Amino acid sequence: MELILVRHGDSEAAPGICIGHTDVALSADGFMAIQRLAAQWTQEAPRFLFTSDLRRAQQSAQVFAARFATEPLADPRLREVNLGEWDGRRWEQIAADDTARYRHWADNWVIQEAPGGESFSDVMRRTGAWLASLLGSTNENDCVLAMAHAGSIRALLCHALGLPPARAFALQLGHARASRIRYRLGQFEVSYTNASRFEADP
């Protein structure tokens, strides 16, 4: 099974805003970047097109859905990390107004949830459950495309690479960038990450 993970295009959120489950739309530039990426798709349509149920991911998925003449399957397990009480606020204001909790979270983000939110370990669990269900419903030659977020894609790549969650930010993931992993013979192979185009096999 080939799994291609795409981070949604840039959103309308202002720079410096804490965006987790805050449901912002794609920006005009973000929409055009996803269109450019979709235009480079040359292989057959994927068997499944999944998306996070947050608007910026769904709008990105609709660009691919129009190309494939299909409907994306929304799954909340592909959402960005839930940042709870901090969602939608400026990071610098959070650090100033909620200093103690912010510092504790910043030092322990793998296991420490944001106030009223979730930890990266929580994201690992829900994306892992999605990945397990996907493996149970696909065949070796199937291709699956999933539109998600930096946090959920990092979690999925940690699963595939066997990478410790604390190393998740070693994986750079830009907006409207693609990563491809393949599952065969009982293990994952990573073909590429953070690519601006869909790369062919060497």
Rank of each mutant, 00 (worst) to 15 (best):
F64S: 00
F198N: 08
L173M: 07
A155K: 04
T138W: 05
P165N: 02
F68A: 00
I153G: 07
L145S: 01
F50W: 15
R184M: 05
N139G: 15
F188R: 08
R167V: 06
T99L: 14
F198V: 11
F31L: 13
S11D: 00
A132K: 15
A65V: 02
A38I: 05
A160R: 07
R154Q: 07
F68L: 00
Y183F: 14
T193E: 00
G9S: 12
D122H: 13
G186K: 06
R55T: 15
S52T: 07
F50G: 07
A96W: 03
S137Q: 15
A100E: 14
A160E: 04
T99C: 14
D107Y: 05
R89W: 09
E189F: 11
P165F: 01
L73P: 01
I4G: 06
A148R: 04
R89D: 04
A33D: 14
T193S: 03
D97C: 11
V24T: 15
A65C: 08
A166R: 09
S133N: 15
Q187W: 00
L135A: 02
F169G: 06
M147E: 01
E92W: 11
R197L: 12
L161T: 01
G116F: 02
S152L: 02
D107R: 12
R36G: 06
F48R: 11
I153E: 10
R177W: 03
D87W: 11
S133F: 10
I19C: 12
